[in-house]
Deep mutational scan, measured.
Amino acid sequence: TTYYDVLGVKPNATQEELKKAYRKLALKYHPDKNPNEGEKFKQISQAYEVLSDAKKRELYDKGGE
């Protein structure tokens, strides 16, 4: 599973699309609303952290993490 899959976006997604997808999923899986989905929330946050940063995203796209 790639970070793009976690957020449900395509690899060519814009920053705005990433932000929108992250917010939607973060609300859905937030531990306050969904106590059993803490791990999913962490995955979503990690994916967004990497993909929202241009340098980290470039490194990730080249095969790094």
Rank of each mutant, 00 (worst) to 15 (best):
Y48M: 05
K10R: 11
D61P: 02
K55H: 13
G63A: 13
E17A: 06
L25G: 03
Y4H: 02
Q15T: 13
K19N: 14
A47W: 01
D53G: 01
A54V: 14
L25A: 05
K24V: 15
Y3S: 02
T14G: 06
K62H: 09
K24E: 15
Y22I: 02
K56R: 12
I44N: 00
T14I: 02
E39H: 12
T2M: 06
K56L: 15
Q15H: 12
H30P: 05
Y4G: 01
R57D: 03
L59D: 14
T2K: 05
E58V: 05
L27I: 11
L59W: 13
K55F: 11
T14M: 03
K33L: 13
E49T: 08
V6Q: 05
E65Q: 12
D61Y: 01
Y48S: 01
N12S: 13
H30E: 09
K55I: 15
L27M: 13
A47F: 01
E58P: 04
Y4C: 01
T14H: 04
Y48P: 00
P31I: 06
K55P: 06
E16W: 07
D53S: 05
K19Y: 11
Y4I: 01
A47N: 01
K33N: 14
Y4N: 00
Q15S: 15
L27F: 11
V50G: 02
N34H: 13
E49V: 07
D53M: 02
Y3R: 01
L18A: 01
A26E: 12
Q46G: 06
K40P: 04
N34S: 07
V9E: 02
E17Q: 12
I44R: 00
A13K: 00
K24Q: 14
K28M: 14
P35E: 07
Q46K: 15
Y60L: 03
K10Y: 08
A26Q: 10
E37G: 12
G38Y: 10
E39D: 13
T1P: 13
G38W: 14
S45Q: 15
R23H: 13
D32C: 12
E65G: 13
E58W: 06
H30A: 10
G64K: 12
N34W: 08
P35G: 10
N12D: 13
A21K: 04
N34K: 07
R23A: 15
Y22C: 03
E17V: 04
S52E: 03
E58T: 05
A21M: 04
Y29R: 02
R23S: 14
K20T: 15
H30R: 09
G64C: 14
F41H: 04
G64M: 15
V50E: 04
L7Q: 00
K19D: 15
F41N: 02
K20I: 14
Y60T: 02
D61W: 02
E17W: 04
P11K: 14
Y22M: 05
A26R: 09
N12F: 07
L25F: 04
K28P: 02
K28V: 10
T14V: 04
N34A: 10
S52N: 05
T1Y: 14
R57T: 03
D32R: 10
G63E: 12
Q43I: 12
